[in-house]
């Protein structure tokens, strides 16, 4: 049986197709076909983007729509995916996917473009508790992105730059809009780029960490979402949370879509 999970984020659509195999009588899951479609602000309507990403994923896997047993959607825009059979929250799908990748995971941190949240999960990948802030850009990737733009760096360069710094400069501004002016004044004051980058990523990490602390930190900590690609952020987050290791999946932005496809498969039994 093949199911599809579609994660409709604020900036991109992620699709994972999941095949449930029977290996010597034991059911096993095989994922692998994934497709992402990046949306720009004011791009295509969300439902059109979802259709497009889904069709591309099917084409890449050599499958047709009728081959898919069920399509489930997750993410902030899950309601826009008209062809999905059911929708599940980002907490449900994120915890499910993270525990599949790291069975010992009990604390899941999800930081994407426009939202950051912390979740507590059980051994089955069921979200028990969560805390997040979806309505303020300060605790999410877009904060770091706006600041990297002020430094004329890509987000990746920005993360790498922060690793070169061992300074701790506190940022006074909490708001993304005000922080932009603060970064500009740091530039004017000839503060090294590396130190500014670290200050910004430390600030995002401390906000994300405060959310995670509300649900409590226990067991293995897994970070999912697009910010996994930012090594500087991962390092800042480790410091903020006071943990030695944070497990990072290889396809961090697809974890929610994967969890979503898994839930779709479970509900077909």
């Amino acid at each position: 049986m093949i199911t599809a999970g579609i994660d409709m984020g604020s900036r991109s659509v992620k699709v994972v197709l999941l095949e449930e195999l029977d290996v010597n009588g034991a059911p096993q899951l095989k994922y692998g076909v994934k497709k992402v479609h990046i949306m720009m602000p004011g791009d295509l309507d969300q439902d059109v983007s979802a259709e497009k990403a889904y069709d591309e994923a099917l084409a890449a896997a050599g499958l047709k729509r009728e081959d898919i047993a069920a399509v489930f959607a997750t993410g902030a825009g899950r309601g826009q995916v008209a062809f999905a059979k059911e929708g599940v929250t980002e907490m449900t799908s994120g915890a499910k996917g993270a525990v599949f990748m790291f069975p010992a995971a009990r604390t899941v941190v999800d930081v994407g473009a426009e939202e950051g949240r912390g979740m507590k999960t059980d051994a089955e990948g069921k979200a028990i508790d969560f805390a997040g802030n979806e309505k303020c850009a300060a605790g999410a990737g877009s904060f770091a992105e706006a600041m990297s733009r002020a430094l004329q760096m890509t987000l990746k360069e920005f993360g790498d730059a922060s690793l070169q710094s061992d300074k701790t400069i506190p940022m006074n501004a909490q708001c993304t809009v005000f922080a932009e002016s603060e970064v500009v004044s740091l530039i004017h004051a000839s503060t090294p780029k590396n130190d500014i980058a670290k200050a910004v990523l430390d600030a995002v990490a401390s906000r994300v960490c405060a959310m995670v602390r509300r649900v409590g930190i226990e067991g293995e900590v897994v970070l999912i979402g697009g910010m996994v690609h930012n090594a500087g952020f991962v390092s800042s987050l480790k410091n903020a949370m006071g943990v030695d290791t944070i497990s990072l999946p290889d396809m961090p932005e697809y974890i929610s879509a994967l969890g979503c496809a898994m839930i779709a498969a479970e509900r077909q039994h």
């Binding site: 602000p41 004011g42 309505k135 850009a137």
Partner: peptide, 17 residues
């Protein structure tokens, strides 16, 4: 709907579209 200025900016672009 967004309180946040950053999100309101993307929302405004969406509305123009």
């Amino acid at each position: 709907s967004s309180v946040c200025v950053v999100f309101a900016k993307s929302e405004a672009l969406g509305l123009l579209k």
